[in-house]
């Protein structure tokens, strides 16, 4: 959790310095993501949105991999094609996301049906926010999941704000979890700032799904401590008082005090750990900065399994333009 927070803070600075174009911080949502990630099996398929840093770390995604994606450089697994935060790694069962809201929710249901057909005892988990509960694919996803009784855990991080729209204006429903009821999908609200509670809820939902008892909708109540993205200024729509109130509930501070109270942790250890994770981030960044840019013509690959004649022609044209200095990366 501390590593995620330190990384987030560094990336926000990188964006302000103009070294990466854009960034979506996850701060405030670490307990929900990491508690969920730890409760799952590595074989389970995750369908992230674009604010899932903590979750990615539970899958062993390295800081170098993430930074290379943000820079869109030669070692970016996505070959410099996607905006920062839209990463994915097939070998970690971490499906590559997109910017449209909610589309991954129904896809996770399809993947669960496919896994069941193959006899794989896994669950699929789409991750989404409070805003996504208004999207078409949230409703389609829960409806299909209820009808086909799939092993899917719908993991909603209600962080109270969909950019500038408060949760109270997203829906008139009292909770997001209760939306499952109409689709025959049990819903549960958990305190997303309590890593233990999240862990237990996901564990239980996973056991139900694997036993063939169907899907669960979990609403983890959290708060987005940072902006929606680096293009957003939350002071336009929410008060300092509200932010201050939620900062008191910061999941990292909460866990730290829990551990201190239990005598399992000391301030000295905490300071040392913070220093250690900041060092890790700095080293990863230093390594990333030595990586060269992405291959300039590689963006013409992977449109289809094999390049079409038209794309070959366009590649040739691009190469000519590059050679003549008419275009630059």
């Amino acid at each position: 959790m501390l590593l995620a927070r330190a990384f987030d803070e560094r990336c926000l600075t990188l964006q302000r310095q103009g070294r990466i174009g854009f960034y979506v911080p996850a701060m405030g949502q670490e307990a929900a993501q990491i508690g969920c990630g730890w409760a799952l099996d590595p074989a389970d398929w995750l369908f992230p949105a674009y604010r899932e840093l903590g979750l990615a770390l539970t899958r062993g995604v390295t800081l170098d991999e993430l930074l290379c994606q943000f820079f869109g450089n030669a070692q970016d697994r996505l070959k410099g094609r996607q905006m920062p935060n839209h990463y994915g790694y097939r070998d970690r069962n971490f499906v590559v996301g997109s910017s449209p809201i909610g589309t991954q929710i129904i896809q996770a249901v399809g993947a669960a049906m496919a896994a069941r057909r193959r006899g794989d005892a896994i669950v699929t988990i789409p991750f989404f926010g409070d805003g996504a509960t208004s999207s078409n694919d949230f409703h389609a996803g829960l409806n299909f999941a209820g009808v086909f009784r799939v092993p899917t855990i719908f993991f909603c991080q209600n962080n109270e704000w969909a950019i500038s729209l408060p949760r109270s204006r997203q829906t008139a429903a009292k909770t997001l979890a209760e939306k499952g009821g109409a689709y025959g999908v049990p819903g549960e609200v958990v305190d997303g700032n309590d890593v233990h509670q999240v862990f237990r809820a996901v564990r239980t939902a996973r056991a139900r799904a694997i036993a063939g008892d169907g899907p669960t909708l979990i609403e983890a109540q959290v708060y987005r401590l940072g902006p929606h993205s680096t293009s957003d200024d939350p002071r336009r729509y929410r008060s300092d008082a509200e932010l201050a109130e939620w900062k008191q509930k910061d999941p990292i501070g909460r866990l730290k005090h829990e551990l201190l109270d239990a005598g399992a942790w000391t301030e000295e250890q905490d300071a040392a750990l913070l220093e250690e994770v900041r060092g890790e981030v700095a080293q990863a960044l230093a390594r990333t900065e030595t990586v060269g840019p992405a291959d300039p013509t590689s963006f013409l690959d992977d449109v289809y399994a094999t390049r079409t004649p038209a794309l070959d022609e366009q590649r040739h044209y691009l190469e000519e333009m590059l050679k003549a200095g008419m275009v630059r990366q």
């Binding site: 398929w45 499906v95 249901v109 399809g110 993947a111 496919a114 057909r117 078409n136 389609a140 299909f144």
Partner: peptide, 27 residues
Amino acid sequence: DRVIDTPLSETGIIGTAVGMALYGLKP
């Protein structure tokens, strides 16, 4: 299991098919 009548939702049908294909089936 192989000829699946779905609820009335085109985004549901296509999104489900996308998920199946990501997993490796041929929907």
